[in-house]
């Protein structure tokens, strides 16, 4: 028994077949995701190193407290919705892959469409959030004069507050906030965008029956790996920018 086990184990590596029993395409996707995680890792570590070298950062509960169509103070509500949408689209992706295993063309189509819609909804939310941050102006005390700033890559109206004419007003905060926030969420958004494009291509190919003819839906699995990765990265981005 033991020797038999050992034998099958060594047989995996004897050549003539894939040692991990996966196709080259999936293997490649896995390695790609590994390398992509180094890109994100480099961004997030840079962000961390700069942020913790500064005395002051921003208070998320004030910066991210708006929701469309209401003026109410709802800290982190909108981003929670975005996160929910993205995670939900991962669930629909799982179901699409599942239908692929069952060789159900209609099933794949249905869940793929929902995944694409989820991705688009996330991008839409992000667009709204960015627009809100950039265009919504706040009073900032700069060199003794009150100015009105949006939150951009070079302006941060969320600095420490001081008394001015008997009123509490903010001073300029570290510009690194805008740079990293827009830079990293933008880079992530770009990934979501490419994911949507990939999924749309998969949808077209499914509709054309390409995979049905090929006899397997592995391409959907590969697209799924990418999609889940983009989701996973969001969890880290969410953690680093909205929670900590």
């Amino acid at each position: 028994m033991e020797t038999a086990l050992a034998q099958t184990k060594t047989k995996m590596w004897t050549g003539g077949k894939s040692p991990f029993n996966v196709s080259y395409g999936k293997l490649m996707m896995w390695y790609f995701l590994m390398s992509d995680s180094f890109t994100f890792g480099a961004f997030l570590i840079s962000y961390g190193s700069i942020r913790f070298s500064l005395n002051h950062w921003v208070d998320h509960n004030y910066v991210f407290n708006k929701f469309p169509f209401t003026e109410a103070n709802l800290p982190l509500a909108f981003v929670s919705l975005m996160t929910f949408i993205l995670i939900f689209s991962s669930v629909t992706m799982v179901l699409a892959v599942h239908q692929g295993h069952k060789m159900s063309q209609k099933g794949v189509e249905k869940w793929l469409i929902l995944t694409i819609l989820g991705g688009l909804a996330f991008l839409g939310c992000q667009a709204w959030e960015w627009t809100h941050l950039i265009t919504h102006q706040h009073d900032v005390l700069v060199d003794g004069v009150l100015q009105h700033w949006g939150t951009t890559v070079s302006h941060n109206p969320w600095g420490p507050e001081v008394m001015f004419n008997g009123q509490l007003v903010a001073t300029p905060g570290p510009v690194a906030f805008g740079g990293y926030f827009f830079g990293i969420t933008g880079f992530h958004g770009f990934h979501v965008f490419t994911g949507v494009v990939i999924n749309s291509i998969m949808l077209v190919k499914t509709k054309l029956g390409t995979f049905q003819k090929r006899g397997h839906y592995e391409m959907i699995e590969k697209a799924g790996l990418y999609w889940h990765f983009v989701d996973l990265v969001w969890v880290f981005v969410f953690l680093c920018f909205y929670l900590i």
Binding site: W13, G15, G16, S18, P19, F20, Y24, L27, Y31
Partner: peptide, 14 residues
């Protein structure tokens, strides 16, 4: 990487 891992001929152990 994938070529080296997946496409070795029969008997070509790592």
């Amino acid at each position: 990487i994938t070529t080296v891992l997946n496409l070795r001929t029969k008997g070509m152990y790592m």
